[in-house]
Design a protein around this nucleic acid. Structure first.
Lengths: 227, 227
DNA sequence: TTTTTACCGTACGGTAGCGTATGGTCATGG
DNA sequence: CCATGACCATACGCTACCGTACGGTAAAAA
């Protein structure tokens, strides 16, 4: 998380005054939100944290709500950008899926922000941005399953299952972390999960005519993306 | 959720005064928590809601924290009791699993309390009770997988996957409900998910020697427990 | 150099909620 | 009939936070 940034380069080497931007406030808001939830996004504490006062805040923002919205927008954008950039160079869809899950679960274990946002889903602003990000993610995962040879609706089903599993995993990693495998075991667990998720549909399924047109290859060999 | 209870039967048919108990306060706290999270468990609003005042509250409880703990205990107990009672009469483990999932996901869609608790997992009291309930649930699901013929560790893995999927599903049903199938489609989706979860481990798995000793039967035919 | 503009500090009033103090009311037992 | 104890009402002080008003400062523009 971006913390108190450097003081603006003053006239010389002297300690000039600290000038803040909208982004600085938004980042601080996200950091606070990660720690204490939406209710921790409070103007005065943030100001203290940034080494300034409310006077600064109410220059940049109309009110607390404006700050929250700015922070959420920033989060959504950073998230979609990151998701796009991080997987662009991997051709094999199975490997992409594996990398995606490894990164996502690891990041979720470290960064409390996502869980904190889910926690505040009662707020309409939060739920709006969550809806956007969620749709994009599920769609993306479903696309991977399509690439892996599953038909459209089956791919969406599995994508949804995969995403709910990810969400639950994230949730657990913050509420009851010891219930999850750690370190190497985590990676093995994840591979086993992928194995299950990538298994072809059974012949006695609820939709008997649904079957991958192409036997899906298993999640790429565990080569790169270790840890 | 239990609301304002009846006034205590007075001397005659007259409107006697309302006398509250610790349980009344705890239930009200849970209701408030379901709606507005942990921070909505506030003494004065609750008093207003119960048609009384703080004077009553501070007779029954030392402080707000005591109320929160009482409410959480009550929740945990109700949850474990319910989990035990609701499945006692079903012999087939596959059917139990299906019933369990149907009930759990339906209840989760209606009752915001669970998601609200997950949201407040930052609080140590909440995370403590969550840990208890979580362990019990995962253990229970894992037992079902054992009954279904999976070896111990594989059963635990799948139980964990099933539970994380449930958690994520719950989360989504409150933050982005439209991303989930509804009505009949929900039931079909769930059956497909169970199908995937119950599939025997592949021969090329991360643990190649892991395989159900007994071909797991698929989730019991969709007979009872509809809707 | 003066003026403007961007930005910050401080002081204030308002609200919501916690916890305390203290007095009131009603049922029950002597 | 009174006294006791369980239970509730009211009033109070305290803290944290929101939002406003307004004055101050420093760098850039004129």
């Amino acid at each position: 998380m971006v913390m108190v940034r450097e003081r603006t380069k003053g006239t010389g080497g002297g300690a000039a005054r600290q000038r803040l931007t909208v982004q600085d406030w938004a980042d601080a808001a996200l950091a606070a939100m990660g720690e204490g939830g939406l209710s921790a996004v409070a103007v005065e504490p943030l100001a203290a944290r940034l080494g300034t006062t409310k006077g600064s805040f109410y220059w940049h923002f109309a009110n607390r709500d404006a700050l929250i919205e700015a922070a959420l927008d920033r989060w959504a954008q950073a998230r979609t950008e990151a998701a796009i950039a991080e997987l662009a160079d991997e051709p094999d869809p199975g490997a992409r899926l594996r990398r995606l899950f490894l990164r996502a679960t690891r990041r979720a274990a470290e960064d409390p922000l996502e869980v904190s946002l889910l926690a505040s889903a009662g707020d309409p602003r939060v739920s709006a941005v969550l809806a956007r990000v969620t749709d994009r993610r599920i769609g993306h995962i479903a696309d991977l399953f399509v690439e892996l040879g599953f038909p459209e609706d089956e791919a969406h089903r599995r994508g949804l299952l995969a995403y709910t599993a990810y969400l639950g995993h994230t949730q657990l990693s913050h509420s009851v972390p010891r219930s999850l495998p750690d370190g190497l075991a985590r990676e093995r667990h994840l591979d086993a999960v992928l194995e299950t998720l990538l298994h072809p549909a059974g012949t006695s399924g609820a939709d008997p005519d649904v079957r991958p047109s192409d036997p899906p290859h298993r999640a790429a060999d565990a080569t790169a993306e270790r840890g």
